[in-house]
Design a protein around this nucleic acid. Structure first.
Length: 173
DNA sequence: TAAGTGATCTCT
DNA sequence: GAGATCACTTAA
């Protein structure tokens, strides 16, 4: 039982998508081998008001994918060495995305992208099989009781209101 | 706890 | 063009 997540899944409020992604499976094709990783930790970045979001000061060349259609990747380099993997949500023109922070055995967004060899070549690409990186529903059900909401990581600069939003979701170990 | 690292953005 | 910033990791 497996089903590719299509654009309709992502074209919803970002908080719904973020929570819904827990337990889904990130699939990466490298040559002929497929890597499957269960998504265990995510963060939501919601719209132009969100001071922790790259989009809060308007559209730039870097964050342009956030303003595009849902179901596309947004990949960028931070701290000069780590690629961050995000999936765009919501309607065109509304900048929102979910940062994939942890999958299965790799915790930490930088380790995840390094392990999967994810870089800017995926930026603004669609999350479908043709691009080599997509997300599937394999019927894994995560009980509500196993999901925790906490504040986001590494965004203290955004001021207390936005830095403390419970926009991080993770599955208990 | 602090350094490493470099693209991007905001001023000149 | 220069300077500051940054959705992190690792080694102490």
């Amino acid at each position: 039982m497996k089903r590719l997540l299509f654009q309709g899944f992502f074209d919803r409020p970002v908080l719904e998508v973020a929570e819904g992604l827990l337990g889904k499976v990130l699939v990466h094709r490298r040559g002929k081998t497929l890597l499957h990783c269960i998504i265990t930790e995510v963060e939501a970045y919601d719209g132009p008001e969100d001071k922790a979001s790259h989009a809060h000061r308007g559209r730039t060349k870097r964050n342009a994918p956030m303003f595009g259609p849902a179901g596309h990747w947004y990949v960028y380099l931070v701290y000069g060495m780590h690629w961050m993997l995000n999936i765009i949500t919501g309607p065109v023109g509304y900048p929102a995305a979910v940062l994939i922070r942890g999958v299965g055995e790799w915790n930490g967004p930088g380790k995840l992208t390094r392990a999967l060899n994810i870089d800017q070549s995926f930026d603004a690409q669609r999350a479908v099989k043709e691009t080599g990186l997509w997300i599937e529903d394999r019927g894994i059900v995560v009980p509500k009781s196993a999901i925790r909401h906490t504040k986001r990581i590494g965004v203290d600069y955004a001021g207390v209101v936005w830095a403390k939003k419970p926009y991080r979701f993770h599955i208990l170990a």
